[in-house]
Simulated scan of single mutants.
Amino acid sequence: MTTSITVEHIADQVMALPPSERGRLVDWLFDQELGHDSWDEQIAKDSQPGGRLEEILSKVRRDIEAKHTRPLDEFLDNA
């Protein structure tokens, strides 16, 4: 007979871990699901012509060309 494990059971077990072990688990999960390489690859793909960021990148380039920008430190000082 196979015992099914529920998310709730796993969550209870995770919460029972010492904080340092929970941190290690979070790091491992991050590497498995949202590793740096896949994030970088997705941003690179989205930044290419036809990618999801094409429209906003075009607007940013137009704003820069039209000098509709200001230095970041000036912006942050006025925030």
Rank of each mutant, 00 (worst) to 15 (best):
P49A: 06
A79N: 08
L17M: 14
S58W: 01
T2A: 08
I10T: 12
T69R: 06
I5T: 14
L25M: 14
D37M: 06
L29V: 15
R70Q: 13
E21F: 03
R70G: 04
V26I: 15
Q13S: 13
F75R: 08
Q42V: 05
P18C: 08
T6F: 02
E55T: 09
D27M: 09
H68I: 01
L53D: 08
R24F: 08
L57N: 09
D73I: 04
D12Q: 13
I56N: 02
T6V: 04
P19E: 14
T69C: 08
L17A: 06
G51E: 04
S38V: 14
E54W: 00
L29M: 15
I43P: 01
F75V: 11
L72I: 10
L29R: 07
P71W: 08
T69D: 06
W39P: 00
G50N: 03
A66C: 01
V7W: 05
E33V: 15
E65G: 08
D31C: 05
E21R: 14
Q32M: 11
Q42A: 14
F30S: 07
R22L: 10
E41G: 05
Q48A: 15
I5G: 00
R62F: 02
A79Q: 15
A11G: 01
A44M: 03
H68Y: 01
L34E: 09
E41S: 10
A66I: 01
D40E: 07
P19L: 14
L17D: 04
L57V: 00
T3G: 03
D63C: 08
I5P: 00
Q48S: 08
P71D: 08
I43T: 05
A16R: 13
D27N: 14
Q42C: 06
E55N: 07
Q32N: 07
K45H: 09
V14S: 04
R62H: 04
K67M: 03
S20E: 15
E74Q: 13
E33A: 12
F75T: 11
W28I: 08
W28K: 10
N78H: 06
W39I: 15
S58D: 13
Q42G: 02
Q13M: 12
T2G: 02
E33S: 07
L17F: 11
V14R: 04
H68K: 14
D46P: 01
L72S: 04
Q48K: 11
G51S: 03
D27F: 09
K45W: 07
I10R: 10
D77R: 12
M1L: 09
R61K: 11
W39A: 11
L72P: 02
G35V: 05
D46F: 02
P19V: 12
G50V: 03
V14W: 05
Q42M: 09
D12M: 07
D40G: 03
R22G: 11
T69I: 12
G51F: 06
D12K: 12
M1H: 05
S4Y: 06
R61A: 14
E41A: 13
D31I: 02
G50D: 04
D73S: 11
R24H: 13
A11V: 06
A16T: 10
L76W: 11
S58C: 00
L53I: 00
R52K: 12
R24P: 01
R22S: 09
V26Y: 13
S20D: 15
D73H: 04
A44L: 06
T3E: 11
A79S: 07
F30G: 12
D12I: 03
W39Y: 10
S38H: 08
T6S: 15
Q48I: 00
L53V: 00
R22Q: 15
